[in-house]
Nucleic acid binder design. Structure first.
Lengths: 102, 102
DNA sequence: TAAATTGCTAAGTAATCTTTAGTATTTTAT
DNA sequence: ATAAAATACTAAAGATTACTTAGCAATTTA
């Protein structure tokens, strides 16, 4: 299982969409939507970034979320994405107040 | 220019490495390291995730950083990555205290 | 328990990435 | 100023990977 596969499955399940429906909403032809999303989710193939952008939009997560190896980072990205601009700035500023690694 | 290209160039420049040197440190054969990193940086081709992992390690950024379309999100990811586990947790918790979008 | 939905897969075709073999550009040293 | 060195860049062929097709398998629902 790849990082991308794990995150895709996580986010799709949260959305309640089937693999095929997600693919169709992301603009894939209905004849191959099911196969392609399944291949992504099983780690058989990896989509190009344009497709990642479309999937991200449908699932309401930022593109970077799919590449977060760490669960906490994935959660952070999802949280950040779902805030208003004003609130996002506060989060970024908060990280600057904290001491860096060693 | 793709998101990946922009982030790669940003992070490589900060590191002070040449395209070729970065490629070699990321494990690419020296005969093609220059061409490949250049192709990535010009948006001509996109590497697979295994290569992204190696590049991320060399440049001391998280993999997700390369896919952050928003500059502030990219900065957040870099900051988060460079904190200790304990501090990272504080950042994640901080996002939970804030009100969500609308 | 039949029907419908959802998940999954092999294999051929299509598309993309990697390597090679350089040229072009920029930087450094004299 | 300019030669040398380093760095950036590119086309094209070869190598690899993704997409489509044509289903079958498993699960869910009525």
């Amino acid at each position: 299982m790849s990082t991308f596969s794990i995150r895709l499955k996580e986010a799709r399940r949260e959305s309640g969409l089937s693999q095929e429906r997600l693919g169709i909403l992301a603009g894939i032809d209905e004849s191959s939507a099911s196969a392609r999303i399944n291949q992504y989710e099983r780690g058989k193939h990896a989509p190009d970034f344009q497709m990642v952008e479309r999937i991200a939009q449908v699932l309401n997560v930022p593109e970077a979320y799919f590449y977060a190896k760490d669960d906490d980072m994935a959660q952070l990205l999802k949280n950040y994405h779902r805030k208003r601009e004003n609130t996002r700035k506060k989060i970024l500023e908060f990280t600057l107040e904290l001491e860096s690694k060693i």
